[in-house]
Amino acid sequence: MDALIYTVMSGAERAMRAQQVHANNLANLETGGFRANLEMAGTQAVKGYGYAARHMSELQADAVSAKPGVQTTTGRDLDVAIQGDGLFAVEDPNGDGGEAYTRSGNFTTDADGRLLLGGRAVMGDGGAVTLPPEHTAVVVGADGSISVQVPGQTDMQVVDKLKLVKPSMSEMTKNAAGLLVSRDGGTLSADASVQVKGGHLEGSNVSAVEEMVATMSLNRDFEVQMKLLNKADSMADAGNRLIRE
């Protein structure tokens, strides 16, 4: 009976933690460029002599969905959406010189012309992207090149190029800030095959219907686990009575 209790209790805990994963996904339904977390579970053997027949459920919640989000037209010069696979590179929020990655392309500039995303510097070929403080137009090309028109001139001048990377999503996880980072902690190399489209933004890839269905399924799983726990308790009580008698 105690072998069943290990599985039941860890399964119930897994269901509760999985609920948190789906709740977080739903909370970011309208967050631009958000990548849904995937809830996965595996088995874990209980360590120690005499526990070979006992196994526990283990939640693995650091996988990220690669499904693209819906893109909308904004017409704003500094709104950029990636076409197909790929990620933008931004300064790591830890400030240690590393990089983090995202699908969100709602860029802004500060008074010094630095290109920012949520207060973090956007990375280009030579480091953080900085635009001329005074310009009358900005155009982001399909390859990520950034061109500006300065006062007094009619031609557009390329000032930098967005750093675009194309890792496998299985190699990525999320940090505490919700940005994507490499599992090995390294910096990714730019990939020239990634294409972008200016004047567009990509929304979250979370499906409200899928998340709600998953939540209801987890509720049923938790109820089953509780019923099994009660049954294991009844079996243990019956065994104790047999021993006493």
Rank of each mutant, 00 (worst) to 15 (best):
L38G: 01
E39P: 11
M40L: 09
M40V: 08
M40Y: 03
M40F: 05
M40Q: 13
A41Y: 02
A41T: 13
G42H: 01
G42N: 03
G42V: 02
G42K: 02
G42W: 00
G42L: 02
G42I: 01
G42F: 01
T43Y: 14
T43V: 14
Q44T: 13
A45M: 05
A45F: 00
A45K: 08
A45I: 01
A45R: 11
V46Q: 10
V46P: 05
K47Q: 12
K47N: 08
K47M: 10
G48T: 12
G48I: 11
G48S: 12
G48Y: 11
Y49D: 10
G50S: 09
G50P: 06
G50H: 07
G50A: 07
Y51E: 06
Y51I: 00
Y51A: 11
Y51P: 00
Y51R: 11
A52R: 09
A52E: 13
A53Q: 15
A53R: 13
R54M: 15
R54A: 15
R54Q: 15
R54L: 11
R54W: 03
H55R: 14
H55S: 14
H55P: 02
H55L: 15
H55D: 09
M56T: 14
M56G: 08
M56E: 14
S57A: 15
E58P: 00
E58C: 01
E58Q: 13
E58L: 12
E58K: 10
L59V: 14
L59Y: 03
L59C: 05
Q60W: 01
Q60H: 09
A61V: 08
A61E: 03
A61Q: 05
D62R: 05
D62W: 00
D62G: 01
D62T: 08
A63L: 10
A63R: 13
A63G: 03
V64W: 01
V64N: 03
A66H: 04
A66Q: 11
A66R: 08
K67V: 11
K67F: 01
K67E: 12
P68M: 02
P68H: 02
P68A: 03
P68L: 02
G69E: 03
G69A: 06
G69I: 04
G69T: 05
G69W: 04
V70I: 06
V70K: 08
V70C: 00
V70R: 07
V70L: 08
Q71S: 07
Q71M: 06
Q71A: 08
Q71N: 02
T72P: 00
T72C: 00
T72H: 05
T72E: 09
T72S: 12
T72Y: 03
T72K: 08
T73R: 08
T73L: 08
T73F: 07
T73H: 05
T73S: 06
T74P: 09
T74S: 09
T74K: 07
T74C: 09
T74I: 10
T74Q: 08
T74V: 07
G75N: 03
G75P: 04
G75I: 04
G75Y: 04
G75L: 03
R76Q: 13
R76E: 13
R76S: 10
R76F: 04
R76A: 13
R76N: 13
R76V: 12
D77Y: 01
D77Q: 12
D77S: 13
D77E: 14
D77H: 02
D77V: 03
